[in-house]
């Protein structure tokens, strides 16, 4: 029970990361999320990150379906997307630094989790 509760949280984290990556490639939000990169890195990242976004979103869908089965899983995925997008929109409006921090935290958590899963 405890383990699967964590996996539900991971679905949300993946959804948030995917949407934040999408926002990274958007004119209006790029500056809010991209502070601190050198300009050459920036150009490359601006192309790469939105592509990676789809990978995160599909990973979230895959995980949701693994957790709940095809029907409820897709509903769970859409629900997570909605909730994550609302959170992201609020953060971008009122606390863009926090939006960026949370995205970085999500990314590190996911990467550590992937490494961990690989080792275990």
């Amino acid at each position: 029970m405890m383990k699967s509760t964590w996996l539900y949280l991971v679905t949300f984290v993946l959804a948030y990361l995917g949407l934040a990556s999408l926002a990274y490639g958007m004119e209006r939000h790029h500056k809010q999320l991209a502070r601190g990169h050198a300009s050459s890195v920036l150009a490359a990242l601006k192309r790469a990150i939105p592509v990676a976004a789809w990978a995160w979103l599909f990973a979230a869908l895959y995980l949701a379906i693994r957790l709940e089965g095809a029907g409820p899983g897709s509903v769970l995925w859409l629900g997570n997307l909605t909730a994550a997008a609302m959170l992201l929109a609020l953060l971008l409006t009122y606390a863009p630094a926090l939006a960026r921090g949370l995205a970085m935290l999500s990314l590190s958590l996911i990467l550590i989790g992937m490494l961990g899963a690989y080792w275990v």
Binding site: L19, A23, R28, H29, A85, A89, T93
Partner: peptide, 9 residues
């Protein structure tokens, strides 16, 4: 899509 996350209070 352009306004997806946009809220300007």
């Amino acid at each position: 899509f352009k306004d997806f996350f946009t809220f300007r209070p």
